[in-house]
C-alpha cells in the first residue's frame, strides 16, 4: 500500500517536472529562433512581471489577503535599486539585493496594521499605501527626482560582463525568474505553504491545529514584497529610466489581473497570466485607448467561464461558474428525460 502511494506521488511530481523542463527549454532556445527584438523584449517584460506576480500570488493567492497596492513594493524596489546603483555606486547584484531587502522591510511594516483587519480592509490599507508612496515619489525631488524620476541608471555588469543587448537582458531576466520560481515553489510545497493555504481557506481552522497566523501573514507579506522589490530593481535596470507613472494603480490592477487569469494559488499560472497581459495588449495596440476596458472584459469572461483562472485549483471556483451552470442544467434535463421514460 505504502509503496504504491509513494510511486504515485513521485509520478505526478515527475510529470510536472517534465512539463517545467520542456517549457524551460523552450524559453532557453527562444532567442535562437526568434530574431525579432520586439518580441524578445515582450518576453523579457513578461519575466519581470512574473516575479512580481509570484510575490502577489504568495500574498493573495496563497495567504488570502487582498493586496491592491502591490505595485508600491515593486516601485520601492525600483527606486531603491536605481538609486543604489546610481548614487551609492553599488554593483548590479548588490543593488538588486538591496532593493529586495528595502521592499521587504517596508512590506513587513505594512503587514503589521493588516493583521487585525479583514480582507477588504487590507485591500484599502495597501491602496492607500500605494498613494502615499506615489506622493512621496512625485514630491521628494532631491531623492526621487520628482515627476521626472531617475534617469541614466547604469547598465548591469555581472562578473565583468556588461549586459546591454536584447538577448543578454532576456537571459538575465529568465535566470532571475527561474530562480524565484524554484525558491517560491519550494516554500509553497513545504509546511510553510501548507500553513499559508490553511490560513487562506479557514483561518480559525488553521489556528486550531497550531498555525501561528499572525507570524505567517507577516511572513507572506515580507517575502512577497521581497520578490516585488527584486523585480522592481530588475525593471529599473532594464529600462534604465523610471518615473512615478510606472507605478500607478493601473499597474497594480494589471498585476492582480495576471494572477487571477493565471489562476490563484498557482505559480506557473502567474507566468501565464503575466505573458497574457504583456503580449495580448500589444496585439490590439491600435485600440490602446480601450486597453483597460478590454482587460476588464477579459476578467469578466474569465469569471464567468473559468472562475479559478487558467491553472488555478478547481476548488477555488466552487460551482458558480457560468459553464458549470450550463453543465448542471444539462444534467438535470437529462435526468428529467430519463424519469419521463
Amino acid at each position: 500500500m505504502n509503496m504504491k502511494t509513494l510511486n504515485k506521488f513521485s509520478l505526478s511530481r515527475n510529470k510536472a517536472l517534465v512539463a517545467y523542463l520542456i517549457v524551460l527549454l523552450l524559453m532557453i532556445i527562444a532567442p535562437l529562433v526568434i530574431k525579432d527584438a520586439f518580441i524578445l523584449r515582450l518576453f523579457t517584460t513578461t519575466y519581470i512581471f512574473s516575479i512580481v506576480c509570484f510575490g502577489n500570488m504568495l500574498v493573495v493567492g496563497y495567504t488570502g489577503m487582498l493586496c491592491l497596492g502591490f505595485v508600491a513594493f515593486y516601485g520601492i524596489g525600483s527606486y531603491a535599486g536605481a538609486l543604489a546603483a546610481k548614487e551609492l555606486g553599488f554593483g548590479f547584484l548588490l543593488s538588486v539585493l538591496f532593493a529586495g531587502i528595502v521592499a521587504a522591510i517596508v512590506g513587513f511594516v505594512i503587514s503589521l496594521p493588516c493583521l487585525r483587519l479583514s480582507v477588504d480592509f487590507v485591500g484599502l490599507i495597501t491602496t492607500s499605501f500605494l498613494n502615499i508612496f506615489l506622493a512621496i515619489a512625485r514630491n521628494w525631488r532631491s531623492l526621487t527626482g520628482g515627476p521626472n524620476g531617475v534617469t541614466g541608471i547604469p547598465r548591469p555588469v555581472i562578473f565583468g560582463y556588461r549586459i546591454a543587448s536584447v538577448t543578454s537582458f532576456y537571459y538575465l531576466m529568465l535566470i532571475f525568474m527561474v530562480l524565484s520560481f524554484i525558491l517560491l515553489n519550494n516554500i509553497i510545497h513545504s509546511k510553510y505553504g501548507r500553513m499559508l493555504q490553511g490560513i487562506r481557506d479557514n483561518e480559525l481552522g488553521a489556528v486550531s491545529v497550531g498555525v501561528d497566523s499572525r507570524k505567517m501573514k507577516i511572513f507572506a507579506f515580507t517575502v512577497g514584497s521581497l520578490f516585488a522589490g527584486i523585480a522592481g530593481s530588475l525593471y529599473s535596470f532594464y529600462i534604465s529610466a523610471i518615473n512615478p507613472d510606472n507605478f500607478i494603480f493601473n499597474i497594480s490592477t494589471q498585476i492582480m489581473q495576471m494572477c487571477v487569469l493565471g489562476g490563484m494559488g498557482s505559480l506557473p499560472g502567474a507566468v501565464i497570466g503575466a505573458a497574457f497581459f504583456t503580449v495580448v495588449p500589444e496585439l490590439y495596440r491600435s485600440l490602446a485607448l480601450y486597453r483597460i476596458g478590454l482587460g476588464g472584459i477579459i476578467m469578466v469572461l474569465c469569471m464567468l467561464f473559468r472562475p479559478q483562472g487558467l491553472l488555478g485549483s478547481r476548488a477555488f471556483a466552487g460551482d458558480k461558474g457560468f459553464a458549470d451552470r450550463i453543465k448542471r442544467a444539462r444534467v438535470v434535463a437529462q435526468q428529467k428525460k430519463a424519469a419521463a421514460k
Binding site: 513545504s190 510553510y192 501548507r194 488553521a206 476548488a315
Partner: peptide
C-alpha cells in the same frame, strides 16, 4: 472549518506542523 482548496492529504499534513522542526532555510533549499 477545513481547507477546501487543499487536498485531503495536505489538510491532514498541516496538523503535523508542531512536530515539524525544519526551518525556512531547510524548506527553501529542500
Amino acid at each position: 472549518r477545513i481547507f477546501k482548496a487543499m487536498t485531503v492529504l495536505d489538510n491532514i499534513m498541516i496538523g503535523d506542523t508542531k512536530n515539524n522542526h525544519s526551518n525556512l532555510f531547510n524548506a527553501v533549499f529542500h
